[in-house]
């Protein structure tokens, strides 16, 4: 993803996202979940589990992973991929913290991929 195609948005104060917690940002391309992982880093991914769209922002965060509140799929906050043996991925959005404010980078006009549950996908 190249910098110049991104639009940066100020979404809130750095301390608004607690460690191992998450907040949601509503955007025109859907809800984005903003986490602070176990390492202290702020990370953002789409707030929709690749399995059945569960709200990942409501999951339990451990290390750099979040487990979905609906059926427990684990997603890496680093690359948005499901942890094996699960399959699937969600979009990761770049984040930076400047002067105590979190900025979220979005690609204007991008759409999220239609998430389908891996079991359903395989069954077809």
């Amino acid at each position: 993803m190249r910098e110049e195609t991104l639009e940066w948005h100020q979404i809130g104060a750095d301390d608004a996202v607690p460690r191992l917690g998450a907040r949601v940002v509503e955007t025109a391309q859907g809800r984005v979940a903003v986490f602070r992982d176990g390492t202290g880093a702020v990370r953002a991914i789409d707030d929709a589990c690749p399995h059945r769209g569960g709200p990942l922002s409501e999951g339990i965060v451990a290390g750099t992973e979040v487990s979905c509140p609906l059926h427990g799929m684990c997603i890496s906050l680093i690359d948005g991929r499901a942890i094996e043996p699960d399959e699937g991925e969600v979009r990761v959005h770049p984040v930076r913290v400047v002067g105590g404010v979190i900025h979220l980078g979005l690609v204007p006009g991008a759409r999220r991929a239609a998430g389908a549950c891996s079991a359903v996908r395989e069954a077809r």
């Binding site: 979404i11 608004a16 907040r23 940002v25 509503e26 955007t27 903003v34 979005l106 204007p108 759409r111």
Partner: peptide, 18 residues
């Protein structure tokens, strides 16, 4: 209270029409 409200709403951005 933070549990129940989004951190931000960005829906009115120029590209929102997409």
């Amino acid at each position: 209270a933070h549990e129940f409200a989004p951190l931000a709403r960005l829906a009115d951005e120029p590209w929102a029409a997409e």
